[in-house]
């Protein structure tokens, strides 16, 4: 068997690992969106203590490498007897890290919606959370969607770091196969191609969605 034939025979195994990559990406994305949205909405209630906590969260988690955060969650917590499986640890790590970025994204989105919208809705007797949910957030989506799409693509690529905490995702499988076969160039090129095959359609979808939400604007 030539080198490429060998790599070809491992393709199903790599694709199976890519499914785990997608799972970590989706899990991390959902957690990050929930956290980011929660923090951004809480900020709008203008409690000084709450906002200070959120500001520290946002700044600290954006200033520290996500790899360090993964190690703290996966290896650090073992000191307290908490042993997370690699995949949940990765999802939590990427989710908390991404939440800090998305807090800023959602905050900017909410700030972009004109005051008058909130005031008018309150005049109609809606409660603050209702105003947020059915008036402000849908309009904020226009601003939020492009950075949200970029975040999803960045996250997909970042999940490669989960290989460092032995999560059985694409990069981890690739490294194992390289250890076994020594076909480093071929296997990493195929791995890069699989990542590309996932991130390019995601980029395409993001652009399509941007066009859709900005339709009828200006």
């Amino acid at each position: 068997m030539t080198a490429w034939e060998t790599v070809w025979s491992y393709l199903p195994s790599l694709l199976l690992a890519a499914v785990t990559t997608v799972q970590i990406t989706i899990g991390g994305f959902v957690l990050a969106v929930l956290l980011g949205l929660l923090c951004a909405v809480l900020q709008e209630f203008r409690s000084r203590a709450v906002n200070a906590v959120i500001a520290v969260y946002v700044d600290v988690f954006r200033a520290v490498p996500v790899l360090t955060q993964l190690f703290i969650i996966y290896f650090g917590l073992t000191e307290f007897g908490i042993r997370l499986d690699p995949v949940p640890a990765a999802i939590i790590g990427f989710g908390i890290n991404g939440g800090a970025y998305l807090t800023e994204v959602f905050r900017a989105g909410i700030a972009s919606v004109h005051h008058g919208q909130t005031e008018a809705a309150q005049m109609l007797g809606m409660r603050r959370l209702t105003v947020m949910r059915i008036v402000v957030l849908p309009q904020a989506m226009r601003i939020v969607l492009p950075p949200l799409g970029n975040f999803a693509i960045g996250l997909l690529k970042d999940t490669a770091l989960a290989s460092a905490v032995a999560a059985p995702e694409l990069m981890f499988r690739a490294r194992n196969l390289v250890d076994r076969t020594f076909l480093s160039s071929q296997i990493f090129i195929v791995t890069a191609a699989i990542y590309l095959a996932m991130s390019l359609p995601l980029g395409y979808l993001t652009r399509r969605a941007e066009v859709r939400v900005s339709r009828g604007q200006r």
Binding site: A160, R175, F182, S184, F188, T191
Partner: peptide, 17 residues
């Protein structure tokens, strides 16, 4: 479209052959 880690491994391990 590809992770920096993949590129890093390609440069470090992939050029060895």
């Amino acid at each position: 479209g590809t992770p920096a880690l993949t590129l890093l491994f390609l440069v470090y391990f992939g050029l060895v052959p």
